[in-house]
Nucleic acid binder design. Structure first.
Lengths: 181, 181
DNA sequence: GAAGGCATGTAAATCGTTACATGATTTA
DNA sequence: TAAATCATGTAACGATTTACATGCCTTC
């Protein structure tokens, strides 16, 4: 019965109001996706484990002729979530960024291609920022009206960070372009 | 003979002057580690593959009674690296951040504990910034004197981004503390 | 002379994604 | 009525890390 971060993702999403495994996955797609993605093939087995550990309860919740399971967090589940949130140690951020890896080795490119690469990375960061402001933030604000403010905190953090990154890369590209003439 | 980002990491590090598998791993530990970590168990098999594909050559380079293999990038290896650097499409950034996941669910905590969590995340970002400025940046500047400027670009990017993140989390923690009274 | 770093590799375990398989309901 | 979405799960695959195994060299 060892819980890992994906277990808490499921537990936390149930606590925020998602009822089915499918709903949990949908919720992550417009919220935790950029810093903690998951898949249905991870959510369903995780729900089974949490149920057999007594951290959630399952009940039948069919919708028309379509079967569905609804889950609720138990008191022990709530305790486990809070204990995790309060614990001192947490895993270091794990990132794999192919764009930055390219930039790292970009000296093998011509000056023009270096600028192209930087602008491509900038565009990607800008697109991510826009997506967060237009899709993720509104969904988080809706959650805020039900008493959960921090999904909104995280959405603002993400949007602001992507904006910072896009600006940084834009400046870097312009400087490089000016230097190269 | 399908190359993935870790292949280019190895190829690129060889190009920047690392000679052995061990040296490649050491180099990543003070450079790409935060955005593209790797392990010896990944580097050695990758070198073998690159060799059998003719993208690098191996030669014996013993140091005293201790055997060592030195690798060099071939013309085909150089071409493959540049083609990758120039290609339009690259994998989206992949991140798993347990700290942000906690913040996302932090509404389950008391106001005080929410501030504690934010300050913990801030401290971690600040520590990462300091590590980059004191360890990574100097190493990158040394590389710059050999003609490779972009390891330094990436190091500045990393340090500046961590500084932005630390400041953002600090402000957020202070606001929350003030609100809670 | 002990500890730590240099050096190479393999095996096992872990973790996560994609593909497969199925079927009902809603919307365009 | 066709496409998209809701809904659940398993199997296969792929990628990466940790542990194992070995041994020499340098520094304290």
């Amino acid at each position: 019965m060892k819980l890992r971060p994906p277990s808490y993702l499921v537990l936390g999403m149930l606590r925020l109001g998602a009822r089915s495994g499918y709903a949990i996955k949908k919720a992550t797609d417009i919220s935790t996706r950029i810093f903690f993605p998951t898949s249905l093939a991870q959510v369903y087995p995780e729900l089974s484990r949490l149920e057999s550990d007594g951290l959630v309860t399952r009940r039948e919740d069919p919708h028309g002729g379509r079967s569905r399971s609804a889950y609720d967090v138990t008191d022990r589940g709530e305790e486990a979530l809070v204990a995790w949130l309060r614990s001192e140690r947490f895993a270091p951020t794990h990132t794999r960024d192919e764009g930055l890896l390219r930039l790292f080795f970009a000296d093998a490119l011509s000056d023009e291609d270096q600028v192209v690469l930087l602008r491509r990375m900038r565009d990607r960061a800008r697109a991510a920022e826009h997506w967060m402001r237009s899709e993720v933030l509104p969904a988080a604000q809706a959650l805020e009206r039900t008493g959960s403010r921090h999904p909104h905190t995280v959405a603002r953090f993400g949007a602001d960070t992507y904006a910072f990154v896009a600006d940084w890369l834009d400046r870097c590209a312009s400087e490089l372009e000016r230097e190269a003439g």
